[in-house]
Amino acid sequence: MPELLNYGFMVRGFEAGIIIAIIAPLVGIFLVLKRYSLIADTLSHVSLAGVAIGLFLRVNPLITAIIVAVISSVAIERLRISKKVFGDSALSIFLSGSLAVAIILISFAHGFGVSLFSYLFGSITTVKQIDVYIIGVLGVLVVATIIAFYKELLYVTVDEEAAKVNGIPTKFINILLIVLAALTVSLAIPIVGALLIAALIVVPVVTALQFKTGFKKTILIAEVVSIFSVISGIIFSFYLNLSSGGTIVLIAIAIFVLTLILKR
């Protein structure tokens, strides 16, 4: 194991991966319980458009992914509130629309070669030092925001109407949650990839829900599952020469299935 840390890219992979592993279930628990799981999926496609824009403009794709995802997340929530379209239709529009943007930019540039593939499915070898810093700073911001607004997020998730009556600014909290989701999704792209991040946000939480316990304990269990999946996934992918994103997600799903069987 220690020899694996002699490689700079592995160290960066672990650093970025562990931060992602911590924030994914924190945001995920609220998304899953609000029936917003699909938002993670949509935002991941939106982030992909951001990546394509970054590659096209030759700037750091992580930065463009973050910007595009955050702006789109606010737009999605506003469209949902406006009730001009159904909530899931709004998601559909953004999901396919951003994929369209991505594919057009790619065809403009006659393909970006292997690098796009690594953004689709995640590849820790492409994580640069600057990416680790970005993921670190924004990751801490996500955690701090969730701690600061924990009680409001929880109340809005459990019972939005009662929260409103109790004077909680529910609209603001909903937007906050979706922006946090956008940040988490775009930050996770280098590690698990755009097509697999939704799994990391949803699966550890769903696993923890099988334990039927309190809210804080559920978060704790989801964190353990997530961190374990990411660390073991990176190690396995290194020794077996597999895709890191795929390995992480498969481990998380294996834990979920095992929990289902044991908790039956």
Binding site: E152, V158, D159, A162, N166, I168, G214, F215
Partner: peptide, 24 residues
């Protein structure tokens, strides 16, 4: 309240106090 919402009775009731405390 959703089936399987992971929340204890005490956690749930304490939400009634949240409005009394401001943000943060």
């Amino acid at each position: 309240i959703e089936m399987n919402f992971p929340i204890t009775v005490e956690e749930f009731v304490s939400m009634g106090r949240y409005g009394k405390r401001g943000l943060f």
